[in-house]
Design a binder for these strands. Structure first.
Lengths: 154, 154
DNA sequence: TAAGATTGAATCGTCAATCTTA
DNA sequence: TAAGATTGACGATTCAATCTTA
């Protein structure tokens, strides 16, 4: 007997919450990515990387630290960093404390890009979420959604 | 002045709902796909296709009808159908009414696969959502999420 | 001319294997 | 031996172009 067989069947409300989660995510993410693309900006994942590196500043960040913050597997992050670095928005520097790793540092043009992305991203979030919910509903939604990832440390 | 600039900035509650939506989707979908893979079953998208075809039965379904139900672009669906057909779970038949199109019909082994997937999928949904929310919370969550895709007909 | 559907080329994601240093 | 990180090979997704019939 394997673990999956031990749980009971989901209720109708549970299944409805699941399907609505898929559809809401599809709709909201689709709108946000479309707004970024319409403004000739790179996808969301680039913003997430640049934001973390911008916060860290010149000290730089190790890939494994970024990996934990962004919930990406190591190889996916490695390929994403390749593309962002090739576009000139970050640099990989050798790490003095640990010869295995590198330090990722945002470039000047990376900081510029991030600042250029934020207003487009912000108004996309507003269009996809803010205009559809009251503030109270948004807060309540966030609390309910948080229960679905509460035990994923981070 | 482009359209995006006309909306106001999102509130903190809106941004929190957005980030929780991304994280909850990542966590829940990851668990469900992992459970399917652990049981040596194909990904969720195959289930969605087989379910629609199983419901339609021997009459078959046109790709463009499936496309609307599954929220997939035409080319993505075409490639997905290639893979499912290559695995023997559906057949493409010429369409008498419209020579441009085909009718998709589920095979016997496709029906068997769908029935085999459901209990694994169901207990995965229960694990990812049902065990984390009361029934009332799940119903409320579904209602709030539905507001995010309310105007996407379908 | 437009709708239904597919395809070539390029991009992106994933798995397993690898490399280097701790 | 294990951790940090990358890479080759392969599979999946995307875009634009194409093909066929309405």
């Amino acid at each position: 007997m394997y673990a999956g067989a031990m749980s009971t069947k989901p209720t109708d409300a549970t299944v409805r919450a699941w399907t609505c989660l898929l559809r809401a995510h599809h709709a909201a993410l689709g709108r946000v990515e479309a707004d970024l693309k319409a403004a000739d900006l790179p996808p969301l994942a680039w913003y997430d990387v640049l934001l973390e590196l911008d916060r860290t500043g010149t000290a730089g960040l190790r890939p494994f630290e970024l990996e934990r913050r962004l919930l990406l597997p190591q190889y996916a992050l490695s390929r994403l960093l390749d593309r962002i670095a090739a576009a000139g928005y970050l640099e990989r520097r050798p790490c003095a404390q640990d010869g295995r790793g590198h330090l990722l540092v945002i470039t000047r043009s990376g900081r510029t890009l991030r600042r250029r992305m934020w207003p487009v991203y912000a108004s996309a979030i507003e269009r996809a979420v803010g205009t559809r919910l009251t503030d109270g509903e948004a807060a309540h939604l966030a609390d309910l959604l948080a229960k679905l990832f509460a035990d994923d440390e981070g």
